[in-house]
Design a protein around this nucleic acid. Sequence first.
DNA 1: GCGCTATTTCCAGGATTCTCGAAATATTAG
DNA 2: CTAATATTTCGAGAATCCTGGAAATAGCGC
Lengths: 106, 106
Amino acid sequence: MKLEQAAKQLEALGNPTRLNLYRALVRAGEAGRPVGYLQETLGIAASTLSHHLHRLILTGLVTQERQATTLICRANYPVMNELLGFLADECCVDAACGPASSEAAA
Amino acid sequence: MKLEQAAKQLEALGNPTRLNLYRALVRAGEAGRPVGYLQETLGIAASTLSHHLHRLILTGLVTQERQATTLICRANYPVMNELLGFLADECCVDAACGPASSEAAA
DNA sequence: GCGCTATTTCCAGGATTCTCGAAATATTAG
DNA sequence: CTAATATTTCGAGAATCCTGGAAATAGCGC
């Protein structure tokens, strides 16, 4: 069920700490960020960060890659785009919802 | 603080019942839906629905309008678009993230 | 005002979340 | 193998959320 998955991803982003964390990764782009760097930047306990990170990874919003003892985290752009698509999906089936939509003639 | 607000909205959408509810309103468009209709459609207790609805209204994602004894609920499209914008906002500052972005020349 | 329908508020129990420190694990360096 | 660093897992307390039933409120028609 797609809705469940979308809800989980939204819930994962619906916590200030995690949203902040996620945005840091989004900003970092392809380069990604090591866990330790994120921990210092966000100023939270390592265990707390690990907990949140785990959640983002479970929902597919973030990926990790090992580099020696350091773990590099990256935002998973395709998953985010899919989520954005899901939200905008059924928008406008019966009403105009703004300028962001497709090229359907007025 | 914008991040707090975005997190609250995402959290509001990050519950299957609420996401379902919200999508029903998105699908309904301008017409909106009466609370009672939503309650039957979703098959949940009136108090539960009221609770979730209240939350969506607090975050600004949903609006209500009274029509006699019936309350019509509508999705607030501008707010949703703002939220989508916030998510896509800092995307790609350092990496390509897909086709959904703006018209900035490459 | 009275009754009627639509909706919300109050209350409570059970589940989940958030946060952290301490201990455990993983990987590399020597 | 031992030491050192990076990260996760464990345990726990406080807070919040989710759900529904019962009672209260809001607006309408008579």
